[in-house]
């Protein structure tokens, strides 16, 4: 069970129609790989973010599968084309079943 998980997202507040923008996302998460052992020799159970998605007005922009080798605090940066004013929805899926969400509006003018 990961504690203190907090997503951060950076999306420009406005863009022109059809513009390609850069989106940066970061989530604080230990990304415990499941390969390590504690001081008593017991396996530390795997606890990672296994999936990250971004939707724009209900349409999927990116859907990422994350694997155990990805390091602490996974950072995902990608580009998206913005056709209209709307809202980006970000979701991170944890191994423990938690889903962390963040939304960012963008204005096309």
């Amino acid at each position: 069970m990961a504690t203190g998980v907090k997503p951060r997202v950076k999306v420009p507040g406005s863009a022109s129609a059809g513009e390609v923008i850069t989106i940066k996302t970061l989530i604080s998460h230990p990304m415990e790989s499941g390969q390590r052992k504690d001081s008593d020799g017991n396996k530390i159970p795997r606890s990672i973010i296994n999936r990250f998605t971004c939707d724009f007005n209900g349409q999927n922009v990116i859907d990422v599968t994350l694997e155990p080798a990805i390091s602490t605090n996974p950072y995902v940066e990608f580009q998206a084309t913005v056709p209209e004013t709307g809202e980006f929805q970000f979701k991170w899926y944890d191994d423990d079943g938690s889903v962390y969400e963040d939304n960012k509006p963008i204005t096309v003018g």
């Binding site: 203190g4 907090k6 951060r8 950076k10 940066k24 970061l26 604080s28 605090n73 950072y75």
Partner: peptide, 12 residues
């Protein structure tokens, strides 16, 4: 500051 992971701790 967005790329700098230290800001997770600053936010906390």
């Amino acid at each position: 500051d967005f790329d700098n992971p230290a800001f997770l701790a600053v936010d906390a």
